[in-house]
Design a protein around this nucleic acid. Structure first.
Lengths: 297, 297
DNA sequence: CGCGGAGTTGAAGCGTTTCAAACGGGGTGG
DNA sequence: CCACCCCGTTTGAAACGCTTCAACTCCGCG
């Protein structure tokens, strides 16, 4: 794989989008593969014939628009993005964030249009891979192929986490989960888990969490009053991880004290799915219809 | 690729879990690849060395448990599943549905544990692929490789749709979006778009939508009173698609006059994302914020 | 037949939304 | 340089909608 050295890219994009600057001579193929989750480091040539580019994206600029027929797959190298969908009435729905190592614009792999726009929350850089070439298994070498697989599965797992985050009930619980989720992300990216830079306004956070932006503001002060966090507009410091985690675990029920709980719970008793081992008493027993079985082939 | 012919599966699984029945001689490799989204039909042999199985899963039984170290990837062949996470207090959080053609247990591709359990909502059949073999690009032939790619991207797109569905504000809007989303899914699977079988109780729908189950019940009667749908417990008929769609479009904030604050719309003006054409003056290059450091790879 | 679960509906409590106002910072223009 | 304005943030107060608790019906099942 060759790291594309600017040129044609710059030519293609008229003056109207020079905000996406190619950064010649900056990145490396090894870094790209590592970003995508590949453990092993490529020795020299991996045999792939993909021409990747490295772009710079200024904060608050769009990487691609909603509905755009972008034919590129992006890998976030630094910074972060929000994926937003603008509804008919002008309301901006934030559907998720993409941070270092995450894929953006994967819909282009199917040749479709982008369902949402991607906007940089901060100064960011992305690797740009032409989807046309990427769709051909021949042109992706084995390394890029494995990396793409890994990145896709990883993105899928992050999407599931996002869903879990948004499934909270109370607004401050949602915010607590969001902060812990962000903290985890920052930690994985090698940054501090305690000090967070949100890079988003209350309105964006509110949209992502599905509440009014005033409610987000109130939830911030609530968590702050509890001593869990210290808030300075867009900079948050987590003071009490355990407290914050306890709050994040709160489910359908009261929001005041996470401790004074009885066994009432929404309860799962009774007719639930016929949990493993319908025969013998609910004893331990290993779970699962051991799928290892079919490996016997 | 060979379609595994039962045997060992039945033997190993005691009477306690015979609910997962292999179905010898039923499926076909062509069907599996088609399910995963591959357009072209495999001619004869595709060169892959994966041993797939076909299992039957009875309704209300679990395909795999939360936290299980399943080493299999599943492809839904018929029926549907819910992905649930059981919280500490026993509350069951439904995180999503998996319908015909969708992947289940993709976390096994990374060797991790399942973050949620999968429970059949109805009589279902799944193809079972050993993740151990699947992780080896050599053993997946080009066809299965392409199919896996397609299925991963497809699942990713469906996850985004789910997030969008759950981002609604009002409960009846959520329900409207859910029904339309389900209708679309059923249509894509070749079934009726008008007549839906939910196969879930109100409690599960409520968990998926993030509201109380009584609220779901009320929302059903609301939509029914509007004449949009006809409800018979778990069978729903959509009577007025346009009306239901209009209700589903309802968002937070100004729904009355889209023109009153026409210019305001978060889209192009003011501080919003500096949409297109910041102009050449923005000037070239300048240094990377920070990541330049890690480019040293 | 009676039990238990699912679904529906009603009434009350309360959290969130909405409307409104005030504060503060960052930018522009005088 | 300061004033001013815009916008994001915060906080308050009232209205709404959802949640919760409760009662009731329907249905399957032992």
């Amino acid at each position: 794989m060759t790291l594309h050295e600017s040129n044609s890219q710059e030519a293609r994009s008229g003056a109207s989008r020079c905000r996406l600057l190619p950064l010649p001579g900056q990145g490396s193929v090894a870094e790209l593969l590592r970003l995508m989750g590949l453990d092993c480091v490529p020795t020299a040539t991996d045999g792939s014939a993909i021409s990747a580019s490295l772009w710079r994206v200024r904060r608050h600029t769009v990487l691609f628009h909603e509905g755009a027929r972008s034919d590129c797959l992006y890998v976030v190298r630094s910074g972060s993005f929000k994926c937003v969908k603008t509804l008919e009435d002008g309301y901006e729905q934030v559907l998720g964030l993409a941070q270092v190592g995450e894929l953006l614009g994967f819909e282009s792999l199917h040749g479709g249009r982008q369902p949402s726009a991607a906007v940089a929350l901060e100064e960011s850089t992305v690797y740009v891979l032409p989807a046309r070439e990427l769709r051909d298994p021949q042109r992706r070498g084995p390394l890029l192929d494995a990396a793409l697989h890994h990145a896709l599965v990883d993105k899928l797992m992050r999407a599931a986490e996002t869903a879990e985050m948004m499934s909270a009930v109370a607004s401050d619980v949602r915010l607590a989960r969001f902060l812990l989720w962000l903290s985890e992300r920052m930690g994985q990216a090698g940054q501090s888990r305690r000090r967070l830079s949100l890079h988003m306004g209350r309105r964006d956070i509110a949209s992502l969490l599905g509440v009014a932006h005033e409610t987000v503001s109130r939830s911030f002060t609530t968590l702050s009053d509890c001593g869990y966090i210290r808030v300075d507009i867009r900079d948050v410091e987590i003071l009490d991880f355990d407290g914050l985690r306890a709050r994040a675990r709160t489910t359908r029920g009261h929001s005041g004290n996470p401790d004074s709980d009885a066994v009432r719970s929404a309860s799962v008793r009774g007719r639930g799915p016929e949990v493993a081992t319908p025969g013998p008493p609910r004893g331990g027993r290993s779970s699962l219809p051991d799928p290892g079985a079919l490996a016997a082939a």
